[in-house]
Simulated scan of single mutants.
Amino acid sequence: MTRFPWADTMAFGLGVLRLAPQTFWAMTPRELAAAHAGVKGRTGGAPDRAALDGLMTLFPDGDGR
Protein backbone atom coordinates (compact mmCIF):
# COMPACT_ATOMS: atom_id res chain seq x y z
CA MET A 1 0.00 0.00 0.00
CA THR A 2 1.25 3.46 -0.90
CA ARG A 3 1.13 6.17 1.73
CA PHE A 4 -0.95 9.26 1.02
CA PRO A 5 1.28 12.12 -0.23
CA TRP A 6 0.50 14.54 2.61
CA ALA A 7 3.58 16.71 2.05
CA ASP A 8 2.76 17.26 -1.64
CA THR A 9 -0.93 17.81 -0.89
CA MET A 10 -0.25 20.38 1.81
CA ALA A 11 2.38 22.10 -0.35
CA PHE A 12 -0.16 22.44 -3.14
CA GLY A 13 -3.04 23.60 -0.97
CA LEU A 14 -1.13 25.90 1.33
CA GLY A 15 1.69 26.96 -1.00
CA VAL A 16 0.31 26.99 -4.54
CA LEU A 17 -3.33 27.79 -3.80
CA ARG A 18 -2.34 29.90 -0.77
CA LEU A 19 -5.30 28.63 1.23
CA ALA A 20 -5.60 29.40 4.90
CA PRO A 21 -5.05 26.24 6.97
CA GLN A 22 -8.69 26.29 8.12
CA THR A 23 -9.89 26.43 4.52
CA PHE A 24 -7.48 23.71 3.37
CA TRP A 25 -8.51 21.28 6.12
CA ALA A 26 -12.22 22.01 5.52
CA MET A 27 -11.98 21.02 1.83
CA THR A 28 -13.20 17.65 0.64
CA PRO A 29 -10.84 15.51 -1.44
CA ARG A 30 -13.09 16.14 -4.45
CA GLU A 31 -12.83 19.91 -4.00
CA LEU A 32 -9.04 19.73 -3.72
CA ALA A 33 -8.87 17.52 -6.84
CA ALA A 34 -11.00 20.03 -8.75
CA ALA A 35 -8.72 22.87 -7.66
CA HIS A 36 -5.70 20.85 -8.75
CA ALA A 37 -7.27 20.18 -12.15
CA GLY A 38 -8.05 23.86 -12.54
CA VAL A 39 -4.49 24.91 -11.82
CA LYS A 40 -2.52 22.08 -13.39
CA GLY A 41 -4.94 21.06 -16.12
CA ARG A 42 -6.49 17.69 -16.54
CA THR A 43 -4.28 14.91 -17.69
CA GLY A 44 -5.56 12.60 -20.35
CA GLY A 45 -3.00 12.71 -23.05
CA ALA A 46 -3.35 13.74 -26.64
CA PRO A 47 -6.51 12.99 -28.60
CA ASP A 48 -6.49 9.91 -30.80
CA ARG A 49 -6.67 10.24 -34.59
CA ALA A 50 -10.48 10.01 -34.74
CA ALA A 51 -10.89 12.74 -32.13
CA LEU A 52 -8.35 14.93 -33.91
CA ASP A 53 -10.13 14.43 -37.25
CA GLY A 54 -13.41 15.40 -35.59
CA LEU A 55 -11.90 18.57 -34.15
CA MET A 56 -10.36 19.45 -37.50
CA THR A 57 -13.78 19.09 -39.15
CA LEU A 58 -15.46 21.27 -36.51
CA PHE A 59 -12.68 23.87 -36.46
CA PRO A 60 -11.01 23.99 -39.89
CA ASP A 61 -8.04 26.23 -40.54
CA GLY A 62 -8.91 29.59 -42.05
CA ASP A 63 -8.52 30.31 -45.75
CA GLY A 64 -5.38 32.40 -45.15
CA ARG A 65 -7.02 35.81 -44.83
Score class of each variant (00 low, 15 high):
residue 1 M to H: 10
residue 1 M to L: 11
residue 1 M to Y: 09
residue 2 T to C: 07
residue 2 T to F: 08
residue 3 R to L: 15
residue 4 F to W: 08
residue 6 W to C: 15
residue 6 W to Q: 15
residue 6 W to Y: 15
residue 7 A to S: 11
residue 7 A to V: 09
residue 8 D to F: 03
residue 8 D to E: 06
residue 9 T to E: 05
residue 9 T to L: 07
residue 9 T to R: 01
residue 9 T to S: 06
residue 9 T to Q: 04
residue 9 T to C: 07
residue 10 M to F: 13
residue 12 F to C: 01
residue 12 F to P: 00
residue 12 F to V: 01
residue 13 G to K: 03
residue 13 G to C: 02
residue 13 G to T: 03
residue 14 L to T: 01
residue 14 L to E: 00
residue 15 G to A: 05
residue 16 V to K: 05
residue 17 L to K: 08
residue 17 L to A: 08
residue 17 L to V: 07
residue 19 L to Y: 02
residue 19 L to S: 04
residue 20 A to R: 11
residue 20 A to M: 08
residue 20 A to D: 12
residue 21 P to W: 00
residue 22 Q to H: 06
residue 22 Q to Y: 04
residue 23 T to A: 15
residue 23 T to F: 10
residue 23 T to Q: 15
residue 25 W to Y: 14
residue 26 A to D: 09
residue 26 A to E: 04
residue 26 A to Q: 07
residue 26 A to Y: 03
residue 27 M to F: 08
residue 27 M to D: 07
residue 28 T to E: 00
residue 28 T to W: 04
residue 29 P to T: 00
residue 30 R to T: 13
residue 30 R to V: 12
residue 30 R to F: 11
residue 31 E to V: 00
residue 32 L to N: 05
residue 32 L to I: 02
residue 32 L to S: 02
residue 33 A to Y: 01
residue 33 A to V: 05
residue 34 A to C: 13
residue 35 A to E: 02
residue 36 H to W: 15
residue 36 H to M: 15
residue 37 A to E: 06
residue 37 A to P: 04
residue 39 V to I: 00
residue 39 V to R: 04
residue 43 T to N: 07
residue 43 T to M: 06
residue 45 G to R: 04
residue 45 G to Y: 06
residue 45 G to C: 01
residue 46 A to W: 10
residue 46 A to I: 10
residue 47 P to Q: 03
residue 48 D to H: 05
residue 48 D to A: 05
residue 48 D to K: 01
residue 50 A to R: 11
residue 50 A to K: 10
residue 53 D to L: 12
residue 55 L to E: 07
residue 55 L to F: 08
residue 56 M to F: 13
residue 56 M to Y: 13
residue 56 M to C: 14
residue 57 T to S: 13
residue 57 T to P: 11
residue 57 T to G: 13
residue 58 L to C: 08
residue 58 L to N: 08
residue 59 F to E: 11
residue 60 P to E: 02
residue 60 P to N: 05
residue 60 P to M: 04
residue 61 D to Q: 14
residue 62 G to F: 00
residue 63 D to L: 13
residue 63 D to S: 14
residue 64 G to P: 02
residue 65 R to H: 09
residue 65 R to K: 10
residue 65 R to T: 10
